[in-house]
Amino acid sequence: MTTSTLAGVAVERDAEGFLADPSLWSEAMATEIAREEGVELTPRHWEVVRFMRHAYETTGAGPNVRLLAKTSGVSVRELYALFPRGPAKTAAKIAGIPKPHGCI
């Protein structure tokens, strides 16, 4: 765990950069995390990020990429175009939630 400042708030993050406490997350932090990941958030990215956030808040876990595609309606191919470094993992990190099961 390391402490860093995101959108003016001191937060703990694990070795891969996931937030230790998802409740501290804000949309301003999402923009900063996305930039670290080389992603400039478009409205379509935001749809996926908010979907991840909602899935985590309702089920306690973020979906892996196939489950994300099946439940969000965004195809796996488009998800990879939006988040080339691994859609579920990157979107989860940006959404401030833990890494989904079955992610690399």
Binding site: T59, G60, A61, P63, R66, L67, K70, T71
Partner: peptide
């Protein structure tokens, strides 16, 4: 379960 059929 979830949409893929796995039970949480």
């Amino acid at each position: 379960g979830d949409a893929l059929g796995f039970i949480p």
